[in-house]
Write a protein that binds this DNA or RNA. Structure first.
Ligand SMILES: [Zn+2]
Ligand SMILES: [Zn+2]
Ligand SMILES: [Zn+2]
Ligand SMILES: [Zn+2]
Lengths: 143, 143
DNA sequence: TGTCTCGTTGAGACCAAGTATCATGTCTGA
DNA sequence: TCAGACATGATACTTGGTCTCAACGAGACA
């Protein structure tokens, strides 16, 4: 579910047209190595208009091709996503993201559900830290 | 740490002046029953300018008098806060917020720390659902 | 072939949230 | 009492995103 053809097929299967503008946006998204902002795509996408870029990225989000990523500074980024629901561990120094295997708080949610009678419908979880590479780089520098 | 006098004292103790504008903002914040947006305060605060309201709310956040609350629709609200670090369970129907007693994912963070070598510095967690009152209201209506 | 229809596009207006600027006002401590 | 730091608020600006709307284009159909 990660290259241009696959995404195009998926769109078509759902009745969306695969137009040149959409292809351009999708291609730009797929060639991002790590997470990216809408603006990043906008710059790599001469030819597709602002609105179309926003619309297409929303479409890709709804389709599960990319996932949202809330950075520590509050800005919203995106990231090509293979799996379904998951969360992220973001390095605040180098920006690298590690996907967590599965939702790690389903137990917690069940507990809360039981304790307070809430029916939990959704949640937002992001974790920020420094990866081991960045930590050892700092340690080396301090020496 | 929740009424006007206490907050004023706290500000003074840290070297901030307690000006009429700040008093007005703080009073408006404290009389909010549940969570509120900056705009809510702005409307209840004729006399304090826009910038000052933003500045004062940031000050209160830094002081721990209020905490941030990310709603399901992505908008940022605030809420008077007694305790320190905690998370929220927000009803998507009536908007009521329940504070969770403590950070429920400290175990998870320790695990991740160990597994991946990240030094975790921060995180963001919000839970959305329907409270029991709203659930039974819907159930009654469906009958 | 022409023509209808409907999804799509993109320029630009608009909007919301928040920050920067800066002239002015107010404390406060020497 | 004076200098300097702190605080204010009008307003301009920025950022991130949506809305509008005229125009386009790819079928479907006759
Ligand atoms: Zn790193
Ligand atoms: Zn999850
Ligand atoms: Zn409710
Ligand atoms: Zn926590």
């Amino acid at each position: 579910m990660s290259d241009l053809e696959n995404v195009s097929l998926k769109l078509e299967a759902l009745g969306y047209r695969v137009t040149p503008s959409r292809r351009a946006v999708i291609a730009a998204v797929l060639q991002q190595s790590d997470h990216f902002s809408v603006d990043d795509v906008l710059h790599r996408c001469r030819g597709a208009g602002r609105a179309t870029v926003f619309r297409t990225i929303r479409l890709l989000t709804d389709l599960g091709v990319v996932c949202r990523l809330l950075l520590a500074d509050g800005s919203l980024h995106y990231r090509v996503s293979q799996r379904g629901h998951h969360h992220h561990l973001v390095c605040t120094a180098c920006g690298t993201v590690r996907d967590l295997d599965q939702c790690a708080i389903s137990d917690l949610m069940r507990e809360l559900s039981d304790a307070y009678g809430y029916e939990i419908e959704g949640h937002w979880l992001e974790l920020y830290g420094r990866c081991s590479a960045c930590r050892s780089a700092v340690a080396a520098e301090a020496r």
